[in-house]
Design a protein around this nucleic acid. Structure first.
Length: 636
RNA sequence: GCCGACGUGGCUCAGGGGUAGAGCAGCGCACUCGUAAUGCGCAGGUCGUCGGUUCAAAUCCGACCGUCGGCUCCA
């Protein structure tokens, strides 16, 4: 007999050679039905795998991340099977599980039409009903190569060739279909109860634009129809939070054919911007930053000196002035360099923190433009910190804390990535290692979990990126901290040390919001347009019941405006219900209904956009409460 | 930039070879109303742009522009 230790610590004895599925069934038939895959001694395994030794076994259902992944990965195999049934000769590339679903990349002459997608989905349902078991076969590299070569599956052959020497090569088979795959999989296709294909898109083989473009079919899958429907419903809901839609509805900004990727901010959008910037100015002042402003157009020699001419040219716009070549700045740093270099500096001055809300222009590919999230001109809430080598860690930690403080005000959750040396980098490996190590130390000093992004750093240095989520869970880089040993060198920046000698300062580039535009996009989706009172373009809407109450309504408006509350009056000859509906649609935090009772008592009937009717309070009291809510930047 | 889909009044959408239709928003009139849509009327579009096919194009074809979903890139 062998002992199997379960997740809860309990130990059960079985005959050697008992399968994991049998173990699950032995625990409870229901568990056997829900279990998709198991972890045996730390490694994921198919349920029909048999156990011969004492083992630790964890049975995983769809509720676990691994369970979801295996489930959807299995769904991608079923997708590939359906496609090969309906379109023989279609070549297979890769088909992984992703965050909320799966995809499979295919190489096929004609592109998939929406009608074909429906047919594929129907075929997948058929395969599920056929309930093929997933079978695993291990084979030698030679056999694997021969097998996939014979079938003309050139992508699989390429994948096999790239597998490490010692890799176990395995194939999984369901029915007539077989695919190269490390596994594991769910026991049989019948487990994949509810699935839906969502879209087709082009995708380069191995993500490289020099390679052939394949067709990627995206889908999602759940063990229950109701879960699938819930998910699809959530997607629909999320679309309502889309900042592009809300931006138009709330009259925040617009983007026109006349300037793709160049957003126009409307009066209400400007209120958001200005409030964010006001907060930003205050915080930076508190934290010892000075503010500067540098020009948008600067001449070619500067960009040659900074390295942008060689490393960033494809992203830049150019112009000519008189006989000279000029570039529109894609980054603010060279301007800051010139200010630093404008006069000598003493070590006593450092760190110098120079902040700039700088408008930069970058040529982004037309296909990637996305509302305010990816644009061709944006305002970076930039700063360059010039410091002694001994100050690096403290300064980085200071910025990490600042970013965290800012994001907390909005209730954002974020994740952190550390990006390392890219191919197109300046400077030696040693300097890069030093810089990267320093960033790592700072992250660890703050105990922040982070993911490493190999080769994704800026050309002048490694960076820490802060990513925020949009309504569909797509993440966008916002804050970033970049450590730079290059620019001070290139611009020959110096400070005079204690020893009276010239020394080289170290610099960091950093942004907190990232770009004001993107941040407003994220903000809009995060709050679904219902901005906290301190940010709301209109904080209060006064709604007189009839025109008999207009006079008092004007008094209310005046009293609020006096306290710098952003207030509007709906003086139209409409019913209260109608006015409320519109104010609600505009997500205005407070609606003040005024009629006979209120005008007589000097009161206002308060309605909050999410809490509803709050009853009448004295006007003065309402003002005090609201001012307090605004000043504390409360989110409600 | 690449792959695919889409582009009809401010918004949401119908129509589809014989020269445009609805609802909402807007404007006017009436109603003077208590917490998410009062009624009636009026006005508003060279159907993204440019070319082609046709007696006739919003409708068919092509190119371009833009948008959307991805790929790649990045704040």
């Amino acid at each position: 007999m062998i002992n199997v230790t379960l997740k809860d610590g309990s130990v059960r004895s079985y005959e050697p050679g008992t399968s994991l599925l049998e173990i699950a069934f032995n625990i409870s038939p229901r568990l056997a039905k829900e279990t998709l895959v198991a972890r045996v001694n730390g490694k994921l395994a198919d349920l029909n795998e048999k156990i011969y030794n004492d083992s630790e076994v964890e049975l995983l259902t769809f509720d676990s991340d691994e369970g979801k992944k295996v489930f959807r990965h299995s769904a991608s195999h079923v997708l590939a099977q359906a496609v090969q049934r309906l379109f023989p000769g279609t070549k297979l590339a890769i088909g992984p599980a992703i965050a909320n679903g799966f995809y499979y990349d295919f190489d096929k002459e004609q592109s998939f039409t929406p009608e074909q997608l429906e047919k594929i989905e129907a075929e997948m349902d058929k395969i599920i009903k056929e309930d093929w078991p997933f079978g695993r076969v291990e084979l030698s590299r030679e056999d694997a190569l021969r097998k996939f070569n014979e079938r003309g599956e050139q992508y699989k052959v390429e994948l096999i060739k790239d597998l490490p020497e010692d890799a176990v090569i395995s194939c999984y088979q369901q029915g007539e279909f077989e695919d190269l795959c490390a596994g594991p999989h769910v026991p049989s296709t019948g487990r994949l109860k509810a699935l839906k294909l969502l879209s087709v898109a082009g995708a380069y083989w191995r993500g490289d634009e020099h390679n052939k473009m394949l067709q990627r079919i995206y889908g999602t899958a759940f063990p229950k129809k109701s879960l699938l429907e819930e998910h699809l419903h959530r997607l629909e809901e999320a679309k309502r939070r889309d900042h592009r839609k809300l931006g138009a509805e709330l009259d925040l900004f617009s983007i026109h054919e006349e300037g793709p990727g160049f957003p126009f901010f409307h009066p209400k959008g400007m209120i958001l911007r200005n409030e964010l910037e006001k907060y930003w100015h205050e915080e930076h002042k508190k934290r010892g930053y000075d503010e500067i402003r540098t020009p948008v157009i600067l001449n070619r020699s500067l960009w040659e000196q900074s390295g942008h001419w060689d490393h960033y040219r494809e992203n830049m716009y150019f112009t000519r002035i008189d006989e000279g070549d000029y570039a529109i700045k894609p980054m603010n740093c060279p301007g800051s360099m010139l200010i630093y270099r404008n006069r000598p500096h003493s070590y006593r001055e450092l760190p110098i923190r120079m902040a700039e809300l700088g408008l930069v222009h970058r040529h982004e590919l037309s296909g990637v433009l996305h509302g305010l999230m990816r644009v061709r001109c944006f305002t970076q809430d930039d700063a360059h910190i010039f410091m002694l080598p001994s100050q690096i860690k403290d300064e980085i930690v200071g910025v990490i804390d600042m970013v965290n403080d800012f994001y907390q005000v909005f209730g954002f959750k974020y994740h952190v990535e550390l990006s390392t040396k890219p191919d197109k980098a300046m400077g030696s490996d040693e300097i890069w290692e030093l810089a990267t190590g320093t960033l790592q130390e700072a992250l660890e000093a703050r105990g922040l979990p982070y993911k490493i992004n190999e080769g994704d750093g800026a050309f002048y240095g490694p960076k820490i990126d802060f990513h925020l989520e949009d309504c569909l869970g797509r993440t966008w880089q916002c804050g970033t901290i970049q450590l730079d040993f290059q620019m001070p060198e290139l611009f020959d920046l110096t400070y005079v040390g204690e020893d009276g000698q010239k020394h080289r300062p170290v610099m960091i580039h950093r942004v907190v919001f990232g770009s004001i535009e993107r941040f407003i996009g994220i903000l809009t989706e995060h709050f679904a347009g219902a901005f906290p009172a301190w940010l709301a373009p209109v904080q209060v809407k006064v709604l007189p019941i009839t025109d008999r109450h207009l006079e008092y309504a004007y008094k209310v408006v005046e009293a609020l405006a006096k306290r710098e509350i952003r207030v509007e009056l709906d003086a139209r000859n409409e019913k209260v219900n109608y006015k409320i509906r519109e104010a609600q649609a505009q997500k205005i935090p407070y609606m003040l209904v005024v009629g006979d009772r209120e005008s007589e008592a000097g009161a206002v009937a308060v309605r909050h956009r999410s809490q509803g009717d709050l009853g009448a309070v004295q006007l003065e009291q309402f003002i005090e409460d609201l001012v307090q809510e605004i000043n504390s930047k409360e989110c409600k």
